[in-house]
């Protein structure tokens, strides 16, 4: 067991390696330090909310986990594997186990909802069979349709995603993430561009599906009611560091509200 793993599980050999363990993470954009010394863990089946002001680095942490952003310091372990040391095919394999739901959905416009969901299978298959629904095998197609059904969009399967509403697009993005069969899910403000009702429905759906699949989830959100309702633990980022790390049940709503208000100011 290497040093980074020991930092996460302690010295006892029988301790369980968490699905996600971040230690001493630091990111700079040019001369600007975004955050440093960030420690964070997500346990098996746990939903963790990450909160903080705009620019505090919440989304950047999620992007570091899949190496869309390269940190300058620290370690990120996914089930004991240091993703920062991976390159090429091994990095792709590590990424394939991490589902990512983006704030702006990041679907491919001009393609159907079904083709977009099918793209989730690129984590485990290659080639034209996972590019467009018309070229997919019956098995892949059926699985993609199953996930579209799970998010309530089976009737829109062949509709172009650029003709869907914001809430429907986010559901397609969730179905694509589920098609990936992830072992860890990262969610970056899925409710930010949606009206309160649709935002709540999307969060409810994500929470329900993640719990049903037993997948740990790390959520970034600016909505206090969602943070409280759909997470087991809340981590607050402020001033480039972790300001608090509390069980959601124990988190004082007044403290959180104050934190959100500070974050907005």
């Amino acid at each position: 067991m290497n040093e980074a793993v020991l930092n996460c599980v302690g010295s006892a050999i029988d301790q369980v390696v968490p699905p996600l363990c971040i230690r001493n993470l630091a990111v700079s954009f040019g001369a600007k330090r975004i955050f440093s010394g960030v420690d964070l863990e997500v346990a098996e089946g746990e939903a963790v909310a990450l909160i903080g002001a705009n620019g505090s680095g919440k989304s950047t942490i999620l992007r570091c986990i899949v190496r869309l952003v390269e940190p300058i310091e620290g370690s990120i372990l996914i089930r004991g594997q240091d993703v920062l040391s991976l390159q090429g095919e091994r990095l792709k394999v590590a990424r394939s186990g991490v589902g990512f739901v983006f704030q702006k959905h990041n679907l491919v416009p001009r393609l159907s909802a079904l083709s977009n969901v099918l793209h989730g299978a690129q984590a485990r298959a290659r080639g034209p069979g996972v590019w467009f629904q018309s070229l997919a095998s019956s098995q892949m197609r059926d699985e993609a349709l199953t996930w579209l059904d799970a998010v309530g969009l089976l009737p829109q399967a062949l509709q172009r995603v650029d003709s869907l509403s914001g809430g429907q697009s986010q559901r397609v993005a969730i179905a694509r993430m589920l098609m990936q069969r992830p072992k860890l899910v990262l969610v970056d403000e899925p409710d930010a561009s949606l009206d309160p009702k649709t935002g709540r429905e999307v969060m409810e759906l994500l929470h329900r599906l993640a719990k049903a699949e037993g997948v740990p989830i790390l959520i970034v959100s600016h909505r206090l009611e969602h943070v409280k309702s759909y997470s087991d633990r809340i981590i607050g980022l402020a001033g480039g560091h972790v300001a608090f790390n509390l069980a959601s049940a124990a988190a004082d709503p007044a403290l959180l509200r104050g934190f959100f208000e500070d974050a907005k100011s």
């Binding site: 899949v66 869309l68 792709k92 394999v93 590590a94 990424r95 394939s96 991490v98 589902g99 990512f100 983006f102 702006k104 959905h105 990041n106 679907l107 491919v108 416009p109 793209h119 989730g120 690129q122 984590a123 290659r126 993005a173 694509r176 993430m177 990936q180």
Partner: peptide, 13 residues
């Protein structure tokens, strides 16, 4: 860039 990032993040080639 969004869709490109999304597919890169899920391990696409």
């Amino acid at each position: 860039q969004g869709p490109r990032e999304a597919l890169t993040a899920l391990g696409a080639s």
